[in-house]
Design a protein around this nucleic acid. Structure first.
Lengths: 333, 333
DNA sequence: ACCGATTATGTAATCGGTTACATAAACGAT
DNA sequence: ATCGTTTATGTAACCGATTACATAATCGGT
């Protein structure tokens, strides 16, 4: 009985060749003779031999793994991006490690940037310290990005996306349009906020301070924003809102409906992300679609290119789309 | 200039000791003298030495990684479980590899069960082939499970959960209660379905074939079930439905609302999972809460216990809870 | 029949740590 | 002063593959 796992030398002995030949037979079959190949093949099957990856990786000075650093694994938005990443990395022979940047401490995250732990890093969190990630393994940033970190980025045009949303609401006749922003300091928040401000200005529409509501992308913060809005005088508060995330839009809509107001009769709402569920809530949400799976795919492909030594500087910018549903309507008379 | 990464022998030379001493100074400080420890520490800092994990793992015959096999990474339900897993594994010094069982082919999945790739396997997909996963690395099953695979399981009492849902609807006076099931063959589907049938029988309520609607947990399948329900004669179709997932419940409700019917006025609905969004849709969904983060945590802890050699046979069964919201009401008169 | 080129295979170093075992020094007890 | 014990450190084998280099065999050409 063989209690231990067979190693390459066991196969070699059984096949009557050297370990070097076995190694070649397995990883470069064209370099050994027909008969040897068959003998090795047979010995592999007889012993049930399976390659030890740790050994190969040590020799090759690579790990075969890519780490994704996610701000919040529980957030469906990110999981869909991860899904895109996984769909590219898997077939390419890499495996995907995932670390939640909230639950892991700084030292652990630093360790992930070690070449002996991962061959590359895909960053989905713009709040990480740039310096700590410098000069270790190749880095690709997706969605969010760390200002000052020179790495290929895969993103969407957040500014233009805000323009789409505001344009749509303005076209419906809304004159008082508000915005619920993401967390302060987040690069996406800033891009969407300034895009909103620009688009409103370009149309000569006002954007007073009290029409900008704080948020943090979460459902609860959307509900909180709704409470503020509900407390404002109906005559001056916005008749339409553009929110920086679908989650916030859901919270917002839920809260105003609870107070007996109707969407879009009393208030039009545009979200951001187009997460799956919002097509099925009532009313179905008008929103900006981010191609999440595609973002993940593109980031993974970018990473693979880096690992092959290709260095393309330019960012990958993926298109967004305004999805028209039933949460927006003409401004009340 | 040091182009190469420093290795342990570089540190040893600089500190004037052997590599063995350096190794001990770093991983078992109490086994070296005070002075040596300081000298090594200094040499480590001077060289910028960082441990090569591949080398250590080869020697230790472990990988430091746990693989989670997920049926669908894009599904928020699973991402929250993963989040729970990550929160336990990270602090314990393990990293989390994730593979999507849909995008990966069979051979790749088999590779994940290799001891040289991962120290353990957490399975969230009950449709995997049991035999392929046997006898390689420790396995823990969470949520779903593979019939016939002898491994510790972390799950909820699906049968009892169905009883809670049916009991609630029956208490509201509903006499015709239907069920939208998950995909055929899924262990969860079967447990929830038989729990439903039992609970109905226990109350003397009928459960004719046409009150059982096929589904596959997805939003679309919920909408499809709604279409079937809408086509049935109002006098005999169910006045209340228990659906095996929240996603299906959303699809179902969205569709019946689109046809002008009211929830819960015309129809009461109970979902399953309590995903975050359903508290904010309209009407807020009455549902069975699964403690997802907790399931992930428990599975990870179970895995750590396995790796320490503890073998506890019994399954971990976590409690579910009926969350009362506004999608259920008294049966129409 | 001889020689350079090609092909197939073996030998042994290497990747970068860990650790069993050996050795030497220091210590306490008789 | 002697001996057993403990403590600190070094030597070298080992984890399990890959691969540069060496060697032997085969082949085609003259």
């Amino acid at each position: 009985m063989k209690h231990d796992r067979p190693k390459i030398s066991d196969v070699a002995r059984l096949a009557g060749v050297s370990t070097a030949t076995v190694s070649r037979a397995l990883s470069a079959p064209e370099r050994v003779s027909e008969e040897t190949r068959a003998a090795v093949q047979q010995a592999v099957e007889a012993t049930g031999y399976r390659l030890n990856l740790a050994a190969r990786n040590l020799r090759h000075r690579r790990t075969g793994g890519i780490v994704a650093l996610v701000p919040n694994l529980a957030n469906p938005f990110f999981s869909q991006i991860l899904s895109g990443i996984a769909s590219v990395l898997g077939p390419a022979g890499y495996n995907l490690l995932i670390a939640d940047t909230r639950t892991a401490d700084a030292q652990t995250l630093l360790d992930y940037a070690e070449p002996s732990r991962a061959d590359g890093l895909i960053i989905l969190d713009g709040t990480l310290p740039a310096t700590a990630l410098q000069g270790r393994v190749p880095v690709v940033e997706a969605c969010e990005w760390v200002p000052g970190l020179p790495a290929p980025r895969v993103k969407i045009d957040n500014r233009a996306a805000a323009g789409l949303a505001i344009g749509h609401l303005a076209d419906l006749g809304h004159r008082r349009i508000g915005h619920v922003a993401g967390p302060r300091g987040n690069v996406l928040t800033e891009a969407r906020l300034s895009g909103t401000a620009e688009a409103l200005a370009a149309r000569g529409l006002p954007f007073p301070e009290e029409h900008l509501y704080p948020g943090d992308f979460s459902l609860d913060s959307g509900r909180e924003a709704a409470r503020i809005w509900l407390d404002q005088p109906a005559a001056t508060r916005p008749t339409a809102l553009f929110l920086a995330s679908d989650a916030m839009a859901c919270g917002f809509i839920g809260e105003v409906q609870r107070h007996g107001l109707r969407v879009p009769g009393d208030l039009s709402v545009v979200g951001f992300d187009d997460i799956e569920l919002v097509a099925h809530i009532s009313p179905p949400l008008t929103t900006i679609r981010q191609p999440r799976t595609e973002i993940g795919r593109a980031a993974a492909e970018r990473m693979l290119a880096c690992l092959k030594g290709e260095t393309r500087e330019a960012d990958t910018v993926l298109p967004v789309e305004l999805i028209l549903r039933a949460s927006t309507g003409p401004a009340p008379a």
